[in-house]
Nucleic acid binder design. Structure first.
Lengths: 211, 211
DNA sequence: GTCTATAGGTGGATAGAC
DNA sequence: GTCTATCCACCTATAGAC
């Protein structure tokens, strides 16, 4: 992890950053997702990348800068994943299954959703990070709301209350399931809850795979 | 755990502790529930209680000791609350409503469930705290499982899957709802999700109060 | 039981050479 | 861009007087 000269990374959309900065973010992201934003230091990143702390400060002057970049990138990647889902299928049930799979992938790498993690540390975060954190949840909520609304209209999903409130409930349930499951180091625990969230919406259980 | 002279506090069940130690735990608990276990220091507690840090170390030598006492007390009080619910009603739906109210009370004091908070910091906690944390969730899961099982048997509740899995899903959903709602400083957001969790189990929405 | 004083370590962050 | 060296604030924890 040490590519000094050129940059290699296209990164057409959003903020461009050097490959080195991306590597720092990769390490910081993993630490933040496992230990929390207050649970790691520049020294931890430096050790993993075999560079000095001072070097890290060149790329991200303050930890608040690092945290900002962390959420910004995470939100951007997540938004791309949601766009990819939209591009892949029109079916609300299938969209939700794929949405759940995004969380499942995070859990499978023995991490917690970055923003779920930061939500716990909310009170200790710089104001900028607090705002960006809510924006992440807002974006998730909007996407879920649209999917739920459309799914209900198409007779694919069933639920009472507004789509928005249901979206909030789904988001919270998945975040909470990750949170608790991680204490048991048991992905199945998350999957079990996720399956129930989908079932409660009327999404049938997957019996056979359908490409 | 160090009770020199008398104690003043009745505390018939469980570990006895001085009134001073209880005061320290009160302050530490609030800090842990708002900022996380890694988000506060002995200095924070000392400032709130107008004593010195050294004084705190007399009652809780290490922070691990403090954390242990924190979970132990929280679990004990929670268990008593569950016992009180059991003593008050036989109806599974009513039990669940009261269970939700326990969480609602925590949220209303602008806190997060202590153990939900600690679950986020899981990887950074002393092993003893990790074990006690899982015990807390286990106890919740057992109680919920019994209530769900009984409620279904009595035709009061409806759900597929095993009661145990449903219990895990309910617990996770409530913890996650608290987690996210706190970022918005909005208790209603928690209540909305909690109501849906109950509704999905077939618990009717409360129309009129019934003492 | 509480205090002062302090040890020993780590946190984020900066200066300036290379 | 990365390094060495360093600053200072803060952390947990202890010694010993009162």
């Amino acid at each position: 992890m040490r590519l000094p000269s050129q940059t290699t990374v296209p990164a057409r959309s959003g903020t461009q950053r050097s490959a080195i900065a991306e590597g720092i973010l990769d390490a910081a992201e993993r630490l933040a997702q496992t230990r929390g934003f207050n649970g790691f230091s520049y020294a931890d990143i430096a050790a993993q990348l075999s560079v000095t702390k001072a070097s890290l400060h060149y790329h991200f002057p303050s930890k608040a800068d690092l945290g900002h970049a962390l959420i910004e990138r995470y939100s951007r990647v997540f938004a791309q994943a949601l766009a990819a889902i939209d591009a892949h299928t029109e079916d609300a049930g299938e969209k939700l299954k794929r949405y759940v799979r995004l969380y499942d992938d995070v859990m499978s790498s023995e991490r917690m959703c970055l923003c779920g993690m930061l939500a716990a540390e909310y009170a200790t975060l710089p104001v900028a990070m607090q705002d960006e954190l809510r924006s992440f949840f807002d974006a998730n909520e909007r996407w879920l709301t649209d999917v739920l609304e459309e799914g209900r209209r198409a007779g694919r999903l069933t639920f009472r209350e507004s789509a928005r409130k249901r979206a909030q409930a789904v988001l919270g349930a998945l975040e909470g399931a990750m949170l608790v499951a991680r204490a048991y180091g048991d992905v199945r625990r998350f999957r079990s809850t996720a399956a129930q969230v989908l079932a409660d919406l009327g999404v049938e259980r997957p019996r056979a795979a359908h490409a």
